[in-house]
Computed example of a mutant assay.
Amino acid sequence: MNKLQDKIALITGGASGIGKGIATAFVKEGAKVVIVDLNEELGNQTIKELQAHQAESIFIQANLVEYDKLKGIVKQVIDTFGKLDILVNNAHASKMNSIEKTTQEDLDLSFNTGFYPTFYLMQAALPHLKETKGKIINFASGAGLNGDVNQGSYAAAKEAIRGISRVAANEFGPFGINVNIISPIADSPGVQKWAKEEPEYYQAMLSKIPLRRLGELESDIGRTAVFLASEDSDYITGQTLMVDGGSIKLR
């Protein structure tokens, strides 16, 4: 269990859900992780759990929409650990609405928390990832690939992330940096809440998954991220990995 031994990973939205699942999988493989999250209480709680596996891991409380501070987050990682090997852009917030009713505020929420932090953190991390021939993992969604109704602002931002990730794969590849995308269906706290509020829609969604279950945060999504962050994926870049139980089959 040392695929990421002594690697330094920066994970946004790492205090809960998919981000926490990835961080947990990483520390169990020997990585030192820096989780970034807006929620200070959850962040402090999660980092204590992670430190049981990797004592040097740290939590940075930050609001990712404050773009002028993103370079400072990367600098703090470098000042603390001396390098950066892995960047995971996971954080994203959005509001469901039909296109007809989507407001500028809805669009701003999705792009300001998802696309722009992903872009600016890749930009800020690039000089350091050049030194380590590092890995970038960004996140897409079936909402963008399928065009799910009432997900206009979210789908738009997620597809923008896929687009810029492919550009980054081409631009960063000559430096030995891999850039890949995970598109998951996961048993996250948000999905669990939705399942209780809309059980019929939840069951309908579940029935369309060939494997008939949601992805586990650590063992399914986290372990896929370990693969993409490790040397096992050195010859894979610019790809979208559907970690969704077979729901979408890309060609």
Rank of each mutant, 00 (worst) to 15 (best):
L84T: 06
L84C: 11
D85I: 08
D85Y: 03
D85F: 04
D85G: 10
I86A: 07
L87I: 09
L87W: 01
L87N: 03
L87T: 03
V88D: 01
N89D: 00
N89K: 06
N89E: 00
N90M: 09
A91F: 08
H92N: 12
H92A: 14
H92C: 12
A93N: 14
A93H: 06
A93K: 12
A93I: 08
A93F: 13
S94D: 08
S94N: 12
S94H: 14
S94V: 08
K95G: 00
K95N: 13
M96Y: 01
M96S: 13
N97H: 07
N97S: 15
S98Y: 08
S98P: 02
S98M: 07
I99W: 12
I99S: 10
E100K: 09
E100T: 14
E100I: 11
E100Y: 10
K101L: 13
K101M: 12
T103W: 05
Q104L: 14
Q104Y: 09
Q104G: 14
Q104A: 12
Q104I: 13
D106H: 05
L107G: 02
L107I: 15
L107N: 01
L107S: 03
D108W: 03
L109I: 13
S110C: 06
S110M: 04
S110Y: 01
F111V: 15
F111E: 03
F111S: 04
F111N: 05
N112K: 14
N112A: 15
T113A: 04
T113K: 06
T113V: 12
T113H: 04
T113L: 03
G114D: 08
G114F: 01
F115I: 12
F115E: 00
Y116W: 15
Y116C: 01
Y116G: 02
Y116T: 11
P117G: 05
P117W: 01
T118H: 01
F119Q: 10
Y120D: 01
Y120G: 01
Y120R: 13
L121V: 12
M122W: 09
M122Q: 12
A124E: 15
A124N: 11
A124K: 11
A125S: 15
A125W: 04
A125M: 07
L126E: 13
L126V: 04
P127E: 07
P127T: 11
P127Y: 11
P127H: 10
H128V: 09
H128E: 15
L129H: 06
L129S: 09
K130V: 10
E131L: 15
E131A: 15
K133A: 12
G134T: 08
K135A: 15
K135Y: 02
I136M: 04
I136Q: 02
I137S: 02
N138K: 05
F139G: 04
F139H: 10
F139W: 10
F139N: 02
A140L: 06
A140S: 15
A140I: 06
G142S: 07
G142C: 02
G142K: 09
G142H: 03
G142T: 12
A143W: 02
A143C: 11
G144M: 05
L145T: 14
L145I: 15
N146Q: 12
N146A: 10
N146T: 11
N146Y: 11
N146M: 14
N146G: 00
G147Y: 04
D148A: 14
D148P: 00
D148N: 13
